[in-house]
Design a protein around this nucleic acid. Structure first.
Length: 460
RNA sequence: GGCCUGAUGGCGGAGUGGUGACGCAGCGGACUGCAAAUCCGCGCACCCGGGUUCGAUUCCCGGUCAGGCCUCCA
């Protein structure tokens, strides 16, 4: 079984073969930390976290190097810092820690590296210098611009040839550009904004050059996989690629380009007046992070995803089913086994998470129905597969009862004991009355052969 | 205007040139004091029009609709 990944550059699925299986490299464009990120920003985080986990499974835990950058130099950051009258680092530190906490709540592992622009400035300046030195970039009016005409393959990744660019140009072109598609590598900072020294004058880097420099510094060129949202294909990744190759440090930039589809805020559109912006930071307070993760993976990563509360509810019910199977087999010790082949086949086919998730249900049903010794194996398979995707990592009791505080738990246990006595006395009226009381507490009881279990019906 | 995706049952969502994944919801049955959970079973799809084919939801062409990118949003 080999991993096949869809490559944006060639527009087809290709078998994945890292240049060095003992050093597999992937880079994903991360956030600009000027505010809390909305849930759409976390789609690539979760999608590429699945890929990261899969690669670690295939090549070994320490063989995979995953870098996800942080853009901490940006106009929006500057504006926010000015509003609050604080240094930009106050803003960027605040939102970066929130971002990392939210990513963790969604079950994402920390990338191996999380480079920041402010910490990569030397490499950025050097790369720009190399581009100017070999004629791929030029200085004009305090700016340094990349000369897109110097790269013959410009436009190949996105399918936007340079000629079309001119016809389609709707934006006013800065007069100092040689070609409308030329983009900024370095520009002067505005009054009162942070600036860095460089041979081209004081200023700050353009957006695209940051990623190229961070990749080179964190991972080295070329890398095996470059990922990000599909909206970044043009111009961001096109420009990254052009710089990365023209800087002359490597002949190839990234071996495979992967892009996740857009997440659409369906409900927000319908009720914009409510001002509901689905910030991940708020969602993780309201829903289990695992349910949000499931919702993000329930569709294929390249497809668009309509984000609705119904989607989250369905995700939670799906996890209820799987955690239920685990709960009913709590006395069974899971055998240490590999995930089943059908599950791996789905995942290896360009991260077909919907099909992989479907396999999880087959494993759950097997766990529920198989007799005797087979249960340990079935449980092992379910856990191995689910854990590979970052699911079923919680204790089942916590999943069902985690939202209850100690007082409620004690109260519920008391009522259940009372109800057990009533049931043993065949006092069905009393038993049903107690069940109603529990229901009023948002608690659902389930009688089983060895006693009753309970769960919170809705997450608090 | 240019480029690019997609259109599957009540909902979400895979996949396939020929016996209709999977989950939720629904229906029937088992189990249960009754439920819930679980198990067994059932029903309900492949945007429209052409073409290729013995046969198309699946391939090709056209259309319609939806969405994305072309403006430093993942």
């Amino acid at each position: 079984m080999t991993l096949a990944l869809y490559d944006t550059m060639t527009r087809k699925k290709r078998d994945f073969a890292p240049r060095d299986p003992s050093r597999v490299t992937m880079y994903v464009c991360g956030p600009t930390v000027y505010n809390f990120a909305h849930i759409g920003n976390f789609r690539p985080v979760v999608v590429f976290d699945v890929l990261f986990r899969l690669l670690r499974h295939l090549y070994g835990r320490h063989a995979v190097l995953y870098a996800a950058n942080v853009t901490d130099v940006d106009d929006k950051i500057n504006r926010k810092a000015a509003e609050e009258g604080v240094p930009i680092s106050t803003i960027t530190d605040r939102y970066l820690s929130a971002y990392n906490a939210d990513a963790a709540a969604l079950g994402a592992l920390r990338p191996t590296f999380q480079p920041r622009v402010t910490e990569t400035m030397d490499a950025i300046v050097k790369m720009i210098g190399d581009l100017v030195g070999n004629g791929s970039a030029y200085a004009a009016e305090g700016h340094v611009l990349f000369d897109t005409q110097s790269f013959k393959d410009y436009g190949k990744l996105s399918g936007h040839p340079l000629e079309d660019m001119i016809a389609g140009a709707r934006v006013d072109v800065a007069p100092y550009k040689r070609h409308p598609a030329d983009f900024v590598l370095w520009k002067p900072s505005k009054e009162n904004e942070p600036e860095w020294e460089s041979p081209f004058g004081p200023g700050r880097p353009g957006w695209h050059i940051e990623c190229s420099a961070m990749i080179e510094e964190a991972l080295g060129l070329p890398i095996d996989i470059h990922g990000g949202g599909i909206d970044l294909v043009f111009p961001h990744h096109e420009n990254e690629l052009a710089q990365g190759v023209c800087a002359g440090h490597a002949t190839e930039y990234a071996h495979a380009w992967m892009h996740n589809g857009f997440l659409n805020m369906a409900e927000e559109k319908m009720s914009k007046s409510l001002g509901n912006v689905a910030l991940a930071h708020d969602l993780v307070e309201k829903y289990p992070g695992e349910a949000l993760r499931w919702a993000l993976l329930v569709g294929h990563y390249r497809a668009q995803l309509e984000w609705t509360s119904e989607l989250i509810d369905q995700a939670k019910r799906s996890l209820d089913r799987l955690y239920g199977a685990l709960r009913r087999s709590s006395g069974v010790a899971a055998e240490p086994v590999d995930p089943p082949e059908a599950f791996m086949t789905a995942l290896l086919d360009d991260l077909n998470t919907p099909a992989a998730l479907a396999e999880l249900f087959a494993m759950a049903t097997k766990l529920e129905t198989v007799a005797g010794g087979g249960r340990a194996h079935a449980k092992g398979e379910l856990l191995a597969a689910a854990n590979l995707l970052g699911f079923l990592t919680a204790d089942p009791e916590f999943w069902f009862q985690g939202g209850a505080d100690e007082d409620l738990k004690a109260k519920v246990e008391g009522l259940i004991a009372e109800r057990l006595a009533a049931r043993q006395a065949k006092d069905w009226a009393a038993a049903d009355r107690i069940r109603d009381e529990l229901a009023a507490l948002n608690v659902e009881v389930m009688d089983g052969p060895t006693g009753a279990t309970w769960r919170l019906k809705e997450q608090a």
